[in-house]
Design a protein around this nucleic acid. Structure first.
Lengths: 199, 199
DNA sequence: CGAGTGATTGACTTAGATCAATGACCGTGG
DNA sequence: CCACGGTCATTGATCTAAGTCAATCACTCG
């Protein structure tokens, strides 16, 4: 029996994808090494890092479950950052050459791949917009407006409120307070893991 | 004589791109209308908007010079937001059907397009990371580390400092003060439009 | 020349971060 | 089974970095 299909992962790639498990802190690739693969995070999280001369690490991006990373390695001969698992993670490793070929040969797949990248782009752009809002309540409202379903902008929280706070660029304390205040003011409703605008 | 080639715009698309000029406030497409085109911003800026029931506008994204927008319309039958020029702008309009076909038929172009999306994704992801840093100085440092060239992370400012402040999610006053402080502390150097880490 | 904008600095206010404590809710191992 | 250690959720009391309001100077453009 095969493992369940990873959501968000194009089926055409399954054939050439190799599962990889790694422990927290494990190195996945290093700056300057040849770009052999593109990766997909099934569970866990991977940080893309660059280092200042003082040795401080600069996080370019933290890839989380359901995300690809190092897609740009498709058109670059070498990785330009380090990738390190920040938690125990399950990845799918896709050889860059295979993906490149598929992209060139299989027009249908090319469309799928473009759609996938475009969707991610859309999501992360709206996150940028959200993060550049000034107030905590503004950000929550923006989140609901963008990600919520239906007329009440209902959304079911995937992870914990702490995770959400991180996503919104807030401390968890501030998020708790903000949600409490918004509920008090009759702006939102909360039940278990469900968030929505109040009627 | 033709206008200069827009940077960042795949040459294969030039044939089917139609130049469009629009005034500030002009509507480019509306929510629910069929997705006829993908757009590229040559100059100016375009906001992608969604509206709450109270009529408040929620900015999903502001596309600026050198960016595509509505790429996701390639795999969706209708636009899911409004697009409005926030300044007088010059756009290139690319029929979605043409792009779709090209993507399917021309493997070489498919690679280029994937590379373009991947690059944008990388950039905007690092912006997210930057915006989730707490301090103003941290953000400036991150910007230099990510976008700067050479060992001193030198970068030449494209626009004004006010624009940069907006990019960093700061008020211009705060950016001025932060840069002044960092220069005073010998962290960075500034000459005209050039920013770099101090030796 | 006057209007408009960018750059800069000062004084004041505030939203959010920080530090801290508490209760609920696991899962785990003795 | 229950006690213990861990994490999440929550609230309170400060503290501070950044936002806001305001003024000035330099520049450019019509």
């Amino acid at each position: 029996m095969s493992s369940p299909k990873p959501r968000g992962f194009p089926s055409a790639l399954l054939a050439c994808a190799v599962p990889v498990s790694c422990a927290a802190g494990a190195n996945i690739f290093r700056t300057g090494s040849p770009t052999h693969s593109v990766f997909f995070v099934q569970t866990g999280a991977v940080r893309l890092l660059r280092f200042g001369r003082a040795g401080e690490e600069v996080v370019l991006h933290e890839a989380r479950a359901g995300e690809f990373f190092a897609e740009a390695s498709l058109d670059s001969p070498r990785y330009h950052c380090d990738a390190v698992a920040s938690e125990p993670s399950e990845l799918l490793q896709v050889p860059a050459a295979a993906l490149r070929d598929l992209l060139e040969v299989d027009g249908d797949f090319a469309r799928q791949w473009a759609a996938l990248l475009a969707r991610q782009l859309r999501d992360v752009r709206s996150r940028v917009e959200r993060l550049s809002l000034k107030g905590a309540a503004e950000r929550v409202r923006h989140l609901l407006a963008c990600e919520g379903r239906g007329p009440r902008c209902e959304m079911v929280l995937e992870g914990t409120l702490k995770d959400l706070a991180r996503d919104l660029g807030l401390t968890h304390e501030t998020l708790y307070r903000t949600l409490a205040a918004m509920e008090r003011d009759g702006v939102i409703e909360r039940h278990e893991k469900v968030l929505r605008l109040a009627k």
